[in-house]
Computed example of a mutant assay.
Amino acid sequence: MLSPLQPAVAGKSVEDCETEIGALAPSERQALLMQCLLDAAEPAKPAPPPLPPTKRSPFKSNPADARKVAAEGKRAVLNALKDPESARFRNLKTSLDLYFCGEVNAKNSMGGYTGFTRFIVMFSHVDLDDGSDKFRDDWWVSCEGIERSDLEALKARIR
């Protein structure tokens, strides 16, 4: 079934669009059919190329500091979990010898694994990925080394 947000493929016929739309109320059907046919008539526009972000080096040269940040960060994440003994970590890194970033999967209170979730630790404060724009931006800046000004410019270009 075609939703109003799905793009149509160029070259579709009326029958193709009607098949995708299926049985809907006449008012909804007509609007979706018109959109499908309009989308099919227009060639798809390519997405603009992303701006190349300026990366700062996420690692300092002192591996002892990085190991200390990683050990303290892992301990902080384990303390934030319901079942720390079940924790599985992956994609771990320290950034700027200040942030500890990665993904963790652990059992919930029902005893099932929840799936890997990104996290950021700074000074034993744990932020788990809640799907918010704020977490996503913090991840890019803290863990990937993207400058905040470059991130804002990229977001403005996408809008």
Rank of each mutant, 00 (worst) to 15 (best):
L81A: 09
N79C: 07
N79M: 12
R90M: 09
E42H: 13
E72C: 08
F100K: 02
I146C: 00
A106Y: 05
E152H: 02
L128R: 09
S95C: 09
A44N: 04
L51S: 09
P43C: 05
D127L: 08
R88S: 08
L37F: 06
S3N: 10
S27Q: 10
T19W: 01
E42Q: 15
Q6A: 12
R88E: 14
R157T: 06
C101M: 03
G22C: 02
F119T: 06
N105S: 13
E103W: 01
E42D: 09
K82Y: 05
P63L: 13
C17M: 06
S61F: 11
R90S: 10
N108A: 09
P4S: 10
D97Q: 12
V126H: 03
A70Q: 15
K45S: 13
T114A: 11
L51R: 14
D16K: 04
D83L: 09
S57N: 15
P52T: 08
F116G: 08
G102L: 07
R90W: 03
G22L: 02
A64F: 12
D129L: 04
I146T: 07
A41P: 00
E72I: 09
C36A: 10
C143D: 06
L33I: 11
P7I: 01
F135K: 01
S57C: 07
S95L: 08
A64T: 13
Y99A: 04
L51K: 13
I158C: 01
V104K: 10
A106V: 08
S27H: 03
E85V: 07
I21S: 05
